[in-house]
Amino acid sequence: MIQNILKDKPTKIFVIFTAFFVANALIAECIGTKIFSLEKLFGMQPSDFSLFGEKHLSISLTCGVLLWPLEFIMTDIVNEYYGPKAVRRISYTAIALIAYAFLMFYLAMGVPPAAFWYGTGVQDGIPDMSKAFNGIFGQGMWIIFGSLTAFLVSQIVDVTVFHKIKKVTGEKKVWLRATGSTLVSQLVDSFIVLFIAFKIGKGWSWQLVFAICLVNYAYKATMAIILTPVIYFVEGRIEKYLGHETAAKMKQAAMGIESE
């Protein structure tokens, strides 16, 4: 029985997607402590603009946003073939493992460091390795809570919008349900994480929250549109691997339609 399960093609795909989904989310959370300039990345000078009365803004993003668009692409593909229950399952798994990872980070930060370790980074310009370690892994609790809450809520929104659009379009217009659901869920994600982490946690003004939210959302929305062809490519590979008949049955089952 176990061998049959391991050889089952839909099961193999789901396991691969789940593993990559969780790993991608955890990496995004870990590298999210670094803020980078999008303008400098493309060799341009940082812009200077105003939004909602907040002046001297530029396009500065966390490195985590480099990976988050992939999460929503995977969400839409899993939604297409396995349905909302599968999306919720991998989302809950990702959240549980991210929470576990951060618990381990905090435990590691509290372990007494070896005396010789403090200065092992001096040659690289790091005078205190213990402070550097704690600085990288010691994200504020509000940021962690905000990020996980935003992730969970946005995933639920993505699944809901995706299926509402699919009920109208059927199997046609993959781009509409994939991009449409992502555009809505990314807006929710951007606002919730900033509201919890910085409005509640840091006392930011509403103007600053909305300004930074709009900047972050503009990037995420642009990436959602740019990466739409990736969904078609991946679905094409899945169809080829599974066979058209199996893929069609999976899509029907995902929509709660019993195949004949």
Rank of each mutant, 00 (worst) to 15 (best):
141 M>N: 03
142 W>N: 12
143 I>R: 10
145 F>T: 09
145 F>N: 13
146 G>E: 00
147 S>M: 15
148 L>Q: 08
151 F>K: 10
152 L>I: 11
152 L>Q: 14
153 V>G: 04
153 V>D: 06
153 V>H: 12
154 S>A: 15
155 Q>D: 04
155 Q>A: 10
157 V>N: 09
158 D>T: 04
159 V>P: 00
160 T>M: 12
164 K>V: 09
165 I>A: 02
166 K>I: 02
168 V>Y: 15
168 V>N: 09
168 V>R: 15
169 T>P: 02
170 G>T: 03
171 E>F: 08
171 E>V: 10
173 K>V: 08
173 K>F: 15
177 R>D: 08
178 A>Q: 13
181 S>R: 04
181 S>A: 12
184 V>G: 03
184 V>F: 10
184 V>L: 14
185 S>Y: 14
185 S>F: 11
186 Q>C: 08
188 V>R: 02
190 S>C: 12
191 F>D: 03
195 F>L: 10
195 F>K: 09
196 I>T: 15
197 A>F: 11
198 F>S: 10
199 K>C: 07
200 I>D: 10
200 I>G: 11
201 G>E: 08
201 G>A: 07
202 K>S: 15
202 K>R: 15
204 W>Y: 08
206 W>R: 06
206 W>E: 09
209 V>W: 01
209 V>Q: 09
209 V>M: 11
209 V>P: 03
210 F>N: 11
211 A>F: 00
211 A>V: 09
212 I>R: 05
214 L>W: 01
215 V>N: 02
215 V>C: 06
217 Y>T: 04
218 A>K: 02
219 Y>T: 01
221 A>L: 14
